[in-house]
Design a protein around this nucleic acid. Structure first.
Lengths: 149, 149
DNA sequence: ATAAAACTTAAAGTTCACTTTAAGTCAAGG
DNA sequence: CCTTGACTTAAAGTGAACTTTAAGTTTTAT
């Protein structure tokens, strides 16, 4: 059995956060030994899922629904399914945004403009600066133009 | 030229947030007509990028660095490049978590267990319940087990 | 010309997800 | 047995990202 400090060390989640999760219902009330929490190592898997969901943009109350938002003892309740479906679509949208953002970063990293001043005339929807027309794709993204400094 | 209300409508970002962004430097100080903000439609592209970066998990001050965190007039400063490199790696990590999370949701949505009680004995690292052994992959993910209700 | 709708600011308030603090209790090692 | 370090709680504090409020000004439509 692990103390809260052990779990904190092994999961990378501070003890204060673990107590907070317990209070919010994200973690089950831990067994106690003389008032102190004792965890089975299983808890680490649950914490992993909580962290994963957080990275994916779930709020605490959403993770709660995800984990225990059903009362029936039949498989995934309608409520759960609805939430999961909705969330799945949100995740897909978020992935698209993530990829777009990576492309913006990559464009910036590959940029070969010699000065910002070269880069502030044309705004195109894909975010590149296409003034001269020669190697437009490798110019600064216009978002970074001097106009806004 | 667009009023702040127009921009709010067209971008989906509340006027109060737009004012906040201006105060924080995310948006350039807008031109004024009798004290009221007037925007060129170009601003919508910038707002799109801000939203994109937010979806991707950038904080406001990070977006600030992204947009104007360089002083030189040579292409992407070292500072910018460092930040972009770091962020790119974070984005990749986040994508992996997103995919994992989708898989957890999908497993839940595909689950065919007849009751939660069927699903609370085995914990495996991939998060599936594999008691009987027949169609293990389609059981409730163990995260959702009764143990924690 | 005037009334309604939309805008302005500064400052205070809100929500989320924790963290910190204070005062005290427990447990593990020597 | 005793000290030290880890733990306990409740409550207050924090930082991020806005939103709301209040009091006033400007624009727009009739």
């Amino acid at each position: 059995m692990l103390s809260i400090g052990d779990v904190a060390d092994q999961s990378g989640v501070p003890a204060s956060a673990l107590r907070y999760y317990e209070k919010e219902g994200l973690l089950p009330p831990a067994e106690r030994k003389g008032g102190q929490r004792r965890y089975s190592p299983d808890i680490l898997f649950r914490i992993r899922v909580i962290k994963m969901a957080q990275q994916a943009g779930f709020q605490v109350n959403e993770i709660l629904t995800l984990l225990e938002g059903f009362d029936s003892n039949v498989p995934p309740s309608e409520r759960w399914r609805e939430m999961a479906q909705k969330k799945r679509m949100e995740l897909e949208e978020k992935q698209r945004e993530l990829v777009l953002m990576q492309e913006v970063l990559d464009r910036g990293l590959r940029c070969t403009c010699l000065s910002w001043d070269e880069c502030f005339l044309n705004v195109s929807l894909d975010g590149t600066c296409d003034r001269g027309g020669e190697k437009g794709a490798d110019r600064h993204p216009v978002v970074f133009s001097r106009r806004y400094r």
